[in-house]
């Protein structure tokens, strides 16, 4: 007979397999580095594993791992300003896919623009426009008020608009600070 511990491990493994890439991609959008994204994903899932006996509802799990990811990243960025070592001579990045030149260029430009958005605003944008969260859900993930989410969204979009110019059209931004509330 399968033990309780084995059953927990199996369930965690299934959840991890199903959600790993989603979490990892969100982490990458936040930090802009796949290796760092792996570390953030790891930290988030370790916290989930440590609390596995308490959280079982899949909806609650998604929110929990999202909160862990966001707060781990923001915590690390605060340390980054003081302690994280900066590599000056950049190592070669991972090769891109087989997309056409235009889409690759658009992706690179957007990624560069995203990196110019301050971390907290960037996390807000990722939660709102990549993960599709509403203002209230984003506020829970960031541990702040809904008003802060709106202002962070507005400022983040302003930065993106400034960098991207016409590449990001006005209709996309219109009412973005409100979102689905």
């Amino acid at each position: 007979m399968r033990s309780h511990e084995d059953e927990d491990r199996r369930q965690f493994s299934e959840y991890f397999t199903a959600r790993r890439e989603v979490v990892r991609h969100s982490a990458y959008l936040m930090c802009g580095d796949w290796h760092w994204a792996d570390d953030l994903t790891q930290a988030a899932f370790i916290r989930v594993a440590s609390a596995w006996h308490r959280v079982r509802d899949p909806q609650a799990l998604d929110a929990f791992v999202r909160t862990c990811l966001v707060r781990t990243y923001l915590s690390e960025t605060r340390r980054v300003w003081r302690r994280r070592e900066r590599v000056v001579a950049e190592m070669p990045d991972v090769a891109g896919g087989s997309d056409d030149a235009e889409s690759v260029a658009r992706r690179v430009v957007f990624a560069q623009a995203l990196r110019q958005v301050p971390p907290r605003q960037r996390v807000t944008l990722v939660c709102r426009f990549y993960q599709g969260l509403d203002v209230a859900e984003t506020a829970v993930a960031l541990g702040c008020s809904e008003g802060t989410v709106k202002s962070q969204t507005s400022k983040g979009l302003a930065t993106l608009r400034k960098v991207l110019g016409d590449a990001l059209s006005v209709p996309v931004l219109a009412g973005a600070t409100g979102g689905k509330e």
Binding site: E21, T41, R106, Y130
Partner: peptide
Amino acid sequence: LFEAAANSAPPPSRLVADELY
């Protein structure tokens, strides 16, 4: 744009469920 940026040829992940658990 977010989708495209997130899917820019990610390297394989080294994370293993059992180790994280």
